[in-house]
Amino acid sequence: MTELSTPLLQVRGLTRHFPVRSGVLLRTSGQVHAADDVSFDLNVGETLGLVGESGCGKSTVGKTLLRLYEPTSGAVLFEGRDIASMNKAELRRMRRNVQIILQDPFESLNARHTIGKILEEPFIIHRLGSTAERRRRVAGLLEKVGLEAATANRFPHEFSGGQRQRIGIARAIALEPKLIVCDEAVSALDVSIQSQVINLLLELQREMNLALLFIAHDLAVVKHVSDHIAVMYLGEIIETATATEIYRSPRHPYTQALLSAIPVPDPGAGRERIVLEGDVPSPIEPPGGCRFHTRCRYAQEDCRQLKPALKPVHSGASVACHHWQSLG
């Protein structure tokens, strides 16, 4: 039995490296540090936004949670139980409770199956209900995500991107999971469709008391759907806070730059723009010390030498920067 106070998901020091192989013998010549020492908690019914630019490791974290990748080190506890020590049956039960929605639902929907068959599959795999009951539940799911029950007879290619994402969501909620990992789930959608899908996720969360791990590169979108936000840079979490706090008082220089880089649909806004120099360094040989120091306008000698730990600022926020207190 888990106690009420135990977070639904606890991630502790999660690290995932990918070997880089080169040469004729494909010897391992280095490691891509995709995720390094990532830790966070996610409570029942809450949303944690994981935000960062391409290659920061946010998707790797999401996939390692589902054990689609094995972690190099660290632990993932779902309802207090380490998923690494789960046997097949336990893992199957865990996966019923943890679902994923990907950026391009088309790639994850079998083109030869009708929508009805696709949505029925989770029930078949987990041996739930009679044929008639499964059909009824599929119709219910379609209605829940705003599609007509008659669409069950159609094929994925007959739907627009937004509708396919609704189907992806219907499949994810089919078994009434406790947690859904949304990996860039709304990133490919047009604005008017994106807002519909965001609203659908917010409504379903409220109705089903779902926890969401919302992974995306768009901070404005992440901020809109999240209770808490973790900002990642080159495989590491560099700041966490509530969504409102991240926006009102970002502490890490990278978070500040990320916020100021977002184009705001208000021509009168007149904000100060922090333009970061250069590109994100390679995750194969990340810079020593603070990984952000090569692009940080405040970097000092100690930033090049010493890696700053992610330290709590108060109970709901933390930052990994030697000098955040003097940045103002």
């Binding site: 627009s160 469709i193 609203n199 901070l219 901020k223 809109h224 209770d227 969504a243």
Partner: peptide
């Protein structure tokens, strides 16, 4: 429809019904 940074988190966005 655009999520804005200054919005209160987790509020419903205005939407355009239907699809293009």
């Amino acid at each position: 429809s655009i999520p804005r940074l200054e919005d209160e988190p987790k509020t419903l966005l205005t939407t355009i019904p239907g699809i293009v």
